[in-house]
Amino acid sequence: MGRTNTRTPGKLTAEIKVRVDENTRDELERLASDASMDLAQFLRELVMIRVYGRDHIARLHRTKLDMVAGIGDEED
């Protein structure tokens, strides 16, 4: 059931809560820190990659960086 959604994910308004043991939380916090992210950002990226796929999320990040840098589609 592959998803080929080319739109950006919507506004971040939905909330997901989950309970984990302290060791799991500590390990997730370590992984987030290693990635220079806070825990919420790390978990959000993890979920988005699992839902939309790594390539799609990477493309969204590249597009956002290109917009900030003032690089248009013609330079791809």
Results as ranks from 00 to 15, higher is better:
R7I: 08
R7K: 13
T8A: 15
P9Y: 12
G10W: 01
I16A: 04
V18I: 15
R19L: 07
V20A: 05
V20R: 09
D21I: 09
D21Q: 13
D21A: 07
N23Y: 14
T24N: 04
T24A: 06
L28H: 11
L28K: 10
L28F: 15
E29I: 10
R30Q: 03
R30G: 00
L31T: 09
L31S: 11
A32H: 09
A35S: 09
S36L: 05
M37I: 05
M37L: 12
D38L: 01
D38Q: 02
L39C: 01
A40Y: 03
A40W: 05
A40H: 05
Q41H: 07
Q41N: 03
Q41E: 10
F42C: 01
L43H: 06
R44D: 09
E45Q: 15
E45N: 12
V47Y: 14
M48S: 03
M48Q: 07
I49L: 08
R50W: 14
V51P: 00
V51I: 15
Y52M: 06
Y52H: 12
H56R: 15
H56C: 04
H56Q: 13
H56L: 07
I57G: 00
R59D: 09
L60E: 00
H61Q: 12
R62V: 12
T63P: 00
L65C: 01
D66K: 09
D66W: 12
